[in-house]
Design a protein around this nucleic acid. Structure first.
Lengths: 267, 267
DNA sequence: CGAACGGTTGAGTTTAATCAAGACGTGTGG
DNA sequence: CCACACGTCTTGATTAAACTCAACCGTTCG
């Protein structure tokens, strides 16, 4: 599977920013409080799900809409205050920069996903979350929401479920990395990315891949060139087509799914 | 790092079964209730930590000491009732059996670790936990403890922390799998295993490796032969020595640690 | 004592990484 | 509006690493 570290998402919605976050659009951004979670378009996938209305008041104070983040800008770096980030539109990438200069990508995020939760990147020295395109996110302080969880009924369980999901997805990614062939891993990635785009209410066939090949490569534990070749081979097989660099269309979903399971051997 | 999925452990203790679990040793095992958590030698690393004494009563009923598990026996398989397992002595291995026959090892467990928590193996069709040697474990029903967590103060936070730890370790393992060279991965594994043995109060130099080479290989995403060769090369370099199959001694911890960081490139 | 299992080692093959060149595409400045 | 420069992607050639197949050895266990 691709974007294994996608982290909890439940509902589908578009990602145009047209009316997603008036409070952000109208001004000071960082402290805009105009939009309660109950009116947020992402509400069903946000922490607020299953929380009774009165308690929304309590949560509202914790959710800090951030000003739009531009491409390549960091949403989070190094030793910031411990925050989790709810992605409302755009896409993010979580990675850590190793001491030797290597960047290891841990996951990609689509609208509705929550980033910076359960990855321990606040512990990693080189942990960071960057926007892959213009994105809008809400930040929630982890200490505060955990404190709130002791008071607000249901919230603790919500956080727990979220964390469980993140953890399970990480385990799944480990299994996927165990699969040997480059082509299998890339197929897995495309298959999963497609599924997640659909969950986000977008087209799962004509996919936009906002990240670089080298990012995909890192995520899959491959070299950039190997990843690129795998894409090319899939295109040659007629499974996908690549009209442009960022756009990849799935021509034969079934065959893609089939390529997802490899022949079963070594590694 | 090795055994990335080790899962929460806090205190050190031996693993001889001499007096670890009287209730188990004396009989029917499965339902023995003779030993409250407060007397359990693993207490500080168990869920009972930071729980007030009266509440121990509530937890006591949830912790089910199991009869000793023999080598290669399963502690858990497939679609059992959702349990987590506290390891008191011995060692365990969590793995999933893929459809194509491949076994993917997700982690190894030492006394004080908790297995079957946050891995999602209850979801995976071929998920299992097996004993690598004669082991004694306690089972705790997940649904029950989660229900109890809504009542017992502090328990919810305890579970949360545990899960967070599991998740972070999985992410760390992903990073490790990103490292390219077989020798680096094996060095990482040995380094981490040593550290964990020490945490468990055992010798970190003269290590016992209860798992098969092929299990280590699977865990590290390598072929058995490659893993074996990496061991041999490390021995040739004078970093380790292998007096017997299961025993591996670390001769030069510093150099082992150095081999843990690889030169910084590709993959 | 023999069979089965696990581990090691070797030889040959395959895959992926590396090195290097060139092609897009995009955005910038003339 | 075009030219150029940069970042990124692709492709080719080569090298290096890991996988596979296979034989052999040592243990363990029946």
């Amino acid at each position: 599977m691709a974007g294994t570290n996608q982290q909890a998402r439940n509902a589908g919605q578009e990602d145009s920013e047209s009316d997603a976050a008036p409070s952000v659009r109208t001004g000071d951004g960082l402290r805009g409080r105009g939009v309660p979670c109950s009116q947020c378009r992402l509400s069903p996938s946000c922490l607020s799900a299953h929380i009774s209305l009165p308690d929304h008041e309590e949560l509202r104070g914790l959710v800090r809409p951030l000003p739009p983040v531009e491409r390549k800008q960091r949403v989070f770096e190094g030793s910031a205050p411990r925050d989790m980030f709810v992605l409302r539109s755009g896409s993010l990438q979580t990675s850590i920069q190793e001491a030797n200069g290597n960047e290891q990508v841990l996951g990609f995020h689509l609208p509705g996903d929550i980033a910076g939760f359960g990855t321990g990147i606040e512990e990693f020295p080189g942990g960071r979350i960057v926007a892959l395109e213009r994105s809008s996110v809400c930040a929630i302080n982890l200490d505060q929401i955990q404190a709130a969880a002791t008071r607000v009924k249901g919230l603790q369980g919500q956080l727990y479920k979220l964390l469980e999901e993140v953890s399970t997805l990480a385990q799944q990614h480990i299994v996927n990395l165990g699969r040997s062939h480059a082509e299998t891993r890339v197929a897995l990635f495309l298959h999963d990315w497609s599924r997640r785009l659909q969950q986000a209410g977008r087209d799962g066939r004509q996919m936009d891949l906002p990240m670089r090949r080298s990012d995909i490569a890192s995520f899959l534990g491959l070299a950039t060139e190997t990843t690129s070749r795998a894409f090319s081979r899939l295109e040659a097989k007629g499974v996908i087509s690549m009209p442009s660099r960022r756009q990849t269309d799935i021509l034969d979903p079934q065959r893609l799914a089939a390529l997802t399971e490899d022949a079963g051997h070594h590694d």
